[in-house]
């Protein structure tokens, strides 16, 4: 009898080895909340480039901008939440280094959902009358075939070659669970993608997933997941409640460093020159140093 289930556990680098330059990649989370940062860091270490990134953007977009990985960005905003703007994203836009495809944030959901439903588009009122129509000249409207005759935006499907999302728990088969209050659009990103990769804080046995949690926390089914990565603290420095909140101190350090090329080179050397284990070790070390300095002050 063939196996009824597949073990999909992988490492970050194995996930990235399945990606190619020029792909369209969706990144889950929202702003600086539950971003699959260990997978993003793995992209930074790789030689893939010319990516089209679709995201409710946060420091994932900022870091990919800083590393020159993004050719085209499909987004409704890029923000660090507690700090409104991401400096690397701003710098990339102001230098004209990335092609901007900006939609209303609800339109991004419509586009992903259309892709997940294998539809060419979904009608929406959002976008009408706004600059989104003029800055996306390919964006079309469609007339309702019914008596109302309304003229609405036909939001095109945002089909993804791959999706990267971070969850709190998952099993080896790809059933993934969020334990915070919002799944954001991670499930839709996965469903809109040819291949979806879920990183998580901890891989557990299937039976454990619902031992202490409501079934509604299991929003991502193995049917849409190609790979599972165990990545403790993998969303750092974004929030991953209830496992941990945003590392505000680190986020401030990221923003400060981004303001100055020398400081940024130092930040990269300190945190982004090695693998994920090196990153996590550097973060722990910085935490200790920061703590003692804070205590002395």
């Amino acid at each position: 009898m063939p196996p009824t289930t597949t073990d999909k556990q992988m490492t970050e680098d194995e996930v990235i080895a399945e990606l190619r330059s020029g792909m369209t990649i969706g990144i889950g989370g929202w702003g600086s909340r539950r971003k699959p940062m260990s997978l993003v860091r793995a992209i930074l270490r790789s030689d893939i480039s010319d990516l089209t990134i679709v995201a409710y953007g946060g420091p994932d977009v900022g870091l990919l901008c800083a590393a020159g990985k993004i050719k085209r960005l499909v987004y409704g905003f890029v923000s660090l939440d507690s700090i409104p703007l991401d400096p690397h994203f701003r710098a990339a836009r102001q230098a004209g280094r990335i092609e901007s495809v900006e939609y209303d944030e609800g339109m991004v959901y419509s586009g992903l959902y259309a892709a997940a439903c294998r539809l060419p588009f979904l009608p929406t009122r959002s976008g009408l009358g706004s600059g989104v129509m003029t800055s996306n000249p390919d964006l079309k409207t469609i007339k309702s075939p019914y008596a109302d005759g309304e003229e609405l935006v036909a939001m095109p499907a945002l089909k993804l070659d791959a999706a990267l999302v971070h969850q709190n728990r998952a099993d080896r088969l790809g059933n993934a669970q969020h334990l915070g209050p919002d799944v954001y659009f991670d499930d839709v990103f996965c469903a809109a993608a040819d291949r979806a990769y879920v990183s998580c804080e901890r891989i557990v046995e299937t039976d454990e997933l619902l031992a202490a949690a409501h079934p509604a926390t299991l929003r991502i089914s193995r049917a849409v997941v190609s790979g599972v990565v165990q990545a403790p603290n993998g969303a750092h420095f974004t929030s991953c409640v209830p496992d941990y909140g945003r590392d505000e101190r680190f986020q401030r350090e990221y923003v400060r460093a981004a303001a100055d090329p020398e400081a940024w080179a130092e930040f990269r050397a300190r945190y982004l020159s090695g693998d994920e284990a090196d990153y996590q070790a550097a973060v722990s070390a910085a935490g200790l140093v920061g703590g003692s300095v804070g205590g002395a002050a």
């Binding site: 701003r90 836009r93 102001q94 004209g96 092609e99």
Partner: peptide, 21 residues
């Protein structure tokens, strides 16, 4: 220049959808 702004801000966010709905 939409593809090279003088200053990039946060993005359109939900404003287009909010205002027509």
């Amino acid at each position: 220049d939409y593809q090279q702004p003088k200053a990039q801000l946060i993005g359109v966010r939900g404003a287009p959808g909010n205002t027509v709905q």
